[in-house]
Design a protein around this nucleic acid. Structure first.
Lengths: 149, 149
DNA sequence: TATTGTTATACTCTATAACTATA
DNA sequence: TATAGTTATAGAGTATAACAATA
């Protein structure tokens, strides 16, 4: 709706975006490599990210966090439970809800995954320290809230 | 294998990577929004990216580019062909191979998709010009070849 | 006999609708 | 009657194996 002639900054933003986008295209496989090592699917990863051992999460709340149907949440938790990574707990306050927590094994798996994912690709290490600081600090200025379109 | 104590640069690289990774996590939905507008699946996008109108690509070569099974390539090309976006051509040199090209409609759809994908998110426009230049120039130093692990 | 591509089939992930049990 | 969760079922997307045509 804000259609107008391109400013110099529009061009810069497009070029910066192109670099960012291209970089992630090239590193998509990195994530899948780490997941394969831990025998996790992409869905497993999204599931683990939301869960922990301290805060039991009701199924319907998980479905919302995962932006999926309730029946799909049942299926995802079933798989993780069969692998011993999560556990369903009954709530005494409302016996309809089943709250999900990570087991010790789930915590361990999540930790290993996070450690791998936080490992920067080698090509970043080839940059100078000042370049790394520049990227880090500029991106740190961007809003961390839910992504916009 | 290069296990050693963390240098200051290791820490910087991890922080920069964390920012890059987080940014793309937050903007994953942007791509899906653009795809939905054009009624394309994620697979359709990957398919279109590899194809053009000038260079007929044999099926087995496409399966390799898409890193999928040959039978899956058949299925993907079938769908695009039914939508009129691609066309199978016989090769007179080897009558076994079927080479795939984008139709005029396919070129148009691919162009519309590329235009949308190249549109930077609003939050980048909120950065200063010098910040945009910094991000663009640092990322431009990274290798463009096939991603490494 | 080897290669290109397709078909038949099955498995994973996702959703919709119908169901159970609580509230 | 409404809500939390599951089950039954169907569809998209992926793979493996058997097959047809051509080299």
């Amino acid at each position: 709706m804000t259609s107008r002639t391109s400013t110099a900054k529009d061009v810069l933003a497009k070029e910066a975006w192109g670099q960012l986008y291209g970089y992630f295209q090239r590193h998509r496989e990195v994530v899948h490599h780490h997941l394969a090592e831990l025998e996790l699917s992409f869905g497993d990863m999204r599931a683990l990210m939301v869960l922990d051992a301290e805060n039991p999460r009701p199924m319907h709340s998980l479905a919302e966090s995962w932006a999926c149907d309730a029946s799909n949440a049942t299926w995802m938790v079933d798989r993780l439970e069969q692998r011993g990574l999560v556990e369903r707990r009954m709530l005494r306050t409302d016996r309809r809800v089943k709250a999900v927590v990570l087991t010790a094994a789930g915590v361990e798996t999540k930790m290993q995954l996070l450690e791998r994912l936080s490992q920067p690709p080698d090509d970043l290490l080839a940059l100078s320290s000042s370049d790394l600081v520049a990227v880090r600090d500029v991106l740190a200025k961007l809003p961390k809230g839910s992504g916009q379109l």
